[in-house]
Amino acid sequence: MRKRAKINDMTIRVVLFLLILTVFAIIEPAVLSATNVCSMINDSIFNGIAALGMMTVMITGAFDLSSMSISMLSAFLTLKFYNIIGYEGDFITMFLIAGTFGALIAMINGFISQKFSLSGFVVSIGTNLIFGSVFFIFLRSSYIKTDAMPQTLLKVRTTAILSLQSSGGTAANLNIGIVVLVLTAAALWLFLNKTQLGRGIYALGGDKVAVERVGYDPMTITLIAYAVFGACVAIAGIYFYSNAGTFEPGMIADKGSDVIASAIFGGCNMKEGKGSVGGILAGVAIITVIKSNLILLGVPVYYVTFTVGAMILLGVLFSTLSEQRLQRNRGR
């Protein structure tokens, strides 16, 4: 019974995705052009990596509002770090350094909430504002112009793993970032499903008292979950700013709600310690296909925002309703 329900949830997501895609394709056939498909995939990279991180914290039963501040601050620190040592950067260390910064910053949230038994959500309301402003207080300037950026990083924009020349002359490029998303997803899947610590993250979301009784250290697990979260949003952040070619703090701020929408639509459930890599990827696919194509069709931006909001509500309702169905089946 449980298996059937699980398959159902995932199947529903895939069917929903195909359905939405088909509707868009009927309205505008260009949706399925190589250019647009590549562009949709490229659009999903930031959201995908960040949502995977968000999921890890949500499985433990917490919720973190400061994801975009952490993302932005770690990217900024990484760029500054390269500037100080006078290095133009490379595709490997940029993610490693940003990931480390992100992990350390996010662990502050985890530490405070676990140490003082506070809700992670409340802690993150405060740290969100602090992370978003602390460094600029000391450095004054918070803007990095294109020519001051580490130059190698800017190549992220133009590096494609697949390049198709369509008949109309427009190029369809699949950006290198998709490799980062796939690697992050694979690594996180292995960690969450195949390691004892990864299972501990689910266990913490299942029962906070029992987790200690079976022999886990709740603090360790909390810190690790937040570190994974911080690393993911930071990797997403450095990718985003390299792709943008310039650093401005605010550019990233409004992306937070897409990340939350994807995580929720991907089946994350804070109350029950639920969330899976596959679910998140499906959630990201659904949100991306809706958002990118609404923009492609020239729908005004408020309608797009409206839709994302509705999707968050639908996602929450969806998981609650499928849970109720499960309960009813059990009662029968």
Binding site: R199, Y202, A203, G206, D207, A210, V211, V214, G273
Partner: peptide
């Protein structure tokens, strides 16, 4: 309260403490 994890399977609940120990 049994100290079990509602979101994990029976098999994993039984084996988890053993694995950790």
């Amino acid at each position: 309260d049994f100290s079990l994890f509602p979101n994990l399977t029976v098999a994993e609940n039984i084996a988890m403490e053993y694995n950790l120990f």
